[in-house]
Design a protein around this nucleic acid. Structure first.
Length: 483
RNA sequence: GGCCCCAUCAUCUAAUGGUUAGGAUAGCGCCCUUUCACGGCGUCAAUACGAGUUCGAAUCUCGUUGGGGUCACCA
């Protein structure tokens, strides 16, 4: 069997798009599953699009997601360089071959003429604007004179008319195009840089890429690539065009309708495991009901044959759920580390808490949070006394005699020799009995006093974690503040 | 508009000629719990439409409709 080599070839736009993450992931999974190599190649042939630090961002986002590449910029490899801007001479050299065999030609047409041509074609209501191959008729002499006189030029692909371009795609099956519908694509721009079409074909061949796995937006330019492979007399790679990731309105996932950068999701507190798991399931499934996957499980069960054809809406609700699932299955130590990081960036960064204390909070809150930061936002009272008391809860649970009853409970707590969860619980029960009232009459005001809120873990867990002293202090404060 | 791709619950999807069309998320309800979650149970909800092929079609074929992608000296 041939050696499996796949690549993820983003252009350095400044961030990693979640659609790009999905493409990279499928490439990565396919490579790992088949003992192949996963290569990162940067497609930076557009000088106008250069973004400072983009490559570094891309690499760090990939790394954060757990997608380690075997060859690429920084990492190196035997097929470099992996930045297309450093391979300009390679493209120049190869395009000469195409000119020699008639598959490509110099074009000296000015942008103005091209513009006029397009206008005319539109006026004639031609189904499609195409270059008219005028420069194909230039003589060798004319071409040489133009070049000597520094007339700007591009090099175009010479598409033969009346041909059927057919290729196989793992996801789509047989795909067919008419060469008459394909424009004489520019291969080398007037600045000497290659266009994507030339560069990706030359590089994929030279880097011995076996499978081209990329988004569906490339499907309609694939015939151009196929023509190039044929013109070079190179073997074509196997193609697999992945379904698009969609906005809720089913258009291509875009910035305008929400977050699209992996970085955005990281900052929002999503776990990389959840994001990877989620994105893997957008367009692929193993054929069973399994939805929770870690990376190794994905590698074990992934196959291109089971990739869907139709686009998938990026549904935040399900990502939220998956994040909670992944969080709950983490060990206490893992969550502790994450929580400490989160605390450093929170309003409580200047306080310090012992690991034992934080671990207790984790076990009390674990089933109640979907995100690590919610340990803080949903139970701030573990980190600082309540600053205010939830108005609706005060209305509902703080009656005229509540203050005096709570005062009695407070004194019972103060006298407690055993400030354990059970100790508090027994004290409250006997106080309620003594007063001849239901336990709820004490439980709800107690919760409100120590937490300021009406929701959260069991009250006895809260007071146990807070400890006797702190609990008494908070009850006293509440007694004063709530009348 | 030309070309190409696609079409199962709101969403992600399973079912590759024979299922009461299954699961998950979200929603709703009940149970558990003097809170909130978790969990459990239940419920709502889909084969776009029309022809064919076949004993039998979500599944194969054709058409219609709808959606998307792409038509640069961007990738």
């Amino acid at each position: 069997m041939e050696k499996i080599r796949v690549r993820f070839a983003p252009s350095p736009t400044g961030y990693l798009h979640v659609g790009g993450l999905r493409t990279a992931l499928y490439n990565f999974l396919f490579a790992r599953r088949n003992n192949g190599k996963f290569i990162l190649r940067i497609e930076d042939t557009d000088r106008n699009r250069y973004v400072e630090g983009a490559v570094e961002n891309l690499i760090s986002a990939l790394k954060w997601s757990g997608l380690e590449f075997d060859e690429g910029p920084v990492a190196g490899g035997n097929f470099g360089p992996y930045m297309q801007s450093e391979r300009l001479d390679i493209y120049q050299e190869h395009v000469k071959e195409l000119i020699k065999n008639g598959s490509a030609y110099y074009c000296f047409c000015t942008p103005e003429r091209l513009e006029k041509l397009k206008e005319e074609q539109q006026k004639q209501k031609l189904p499609q604007a195409k270059y008219d191959k005028q420069c194909l008729t230039l003589s060798k002499n004319e071409i040489e004179t133009n070049i000597r006189n520094n007339v700007p030029f591009v090099i175009r692909l010479n598409v033969e008319p009346n041909k059927k371009i057919i290729f196989d795609d793992i996801v789509r099956g047989k795909v067919e195009f008419e060469s008459n519908n394909i424009d004489d694509q520019v291969l080398i721009k007037s600045d000497g840089y290659p266009t994507y079409h030339l560069a990706n074909v030359v590089d994929d061949h030279l880097m011995q890429i076996s499978h081209v796995i990329r988004g569906e937006e490339w499907l309609s330019s694939t015939p151009k690539h196929v023509i190039l492979y044929d013109a070079f007399k190179w073997e074509r790679p196997t193609f697999a065009h992945l379904p698009l990731l969609l906005n809720p309105d089913r258009s291509k996932l875009s910035k305008r309708q929400g977050d699209v950068a992996v970085e955005d999701y990281r900052v929002k507190g999503f776990l990389k495991e959840a994001l990877v798991n989620f994105v893997a399931l957008l367009g692929w499934n193993a054929g069973d009901d399994k939805e929770f996957y870690n990376m190794n499980e994905l590698i074990d069960s992934f196959s291109l044959e089971r990739v869907n054809k139709s686009g998938a809406v990026f549904d935040l609700e399900k990502l939220n759920w998956l994040n909670a699932e992944h969080l709950r299955r983490k060990t206490q130590e893992e969550i502790l580390a994450l929580l400490k990081d989160e605390l450093k960036n929170s309003e409580f960064s200047h306080f310090s808490f012992s690991d034992e204390y934080l671990v207790q909070i984790i076990s009390a809150m674990k089933e109640r949070v979907s995100f690590v930061k919610e340990f803080i936002t949903k139970s701030p009272y573990f980190f600082d006394p309540p600053k205010f008391y939830e108005e609706a809860a005060v209305q509902k649970n703080w009656k005229d005699d509540t203050g005096s009853q709570l005062k009695i409970l407070r004194d019972e707590f103060a006298a407690l020799a055993d400030p354990s969860k059970e100790g508090f619980e027994h004290a409250l029960a006997s106080t309620a009995e003594k007063l001849g009232i239901g336990k709820g009459k004490l439980i709800h005001p107690l919760r409100l006093s120590v937490s300021g809120m009406s929701t959260g873990p069991g009250v006895f867990d809260i007071v146990m974690i807070l400890g006797k002293e702190e609990t008494l202090k908070r009850i006293d404060t509440a007694l004063e503040k709530i009348k």
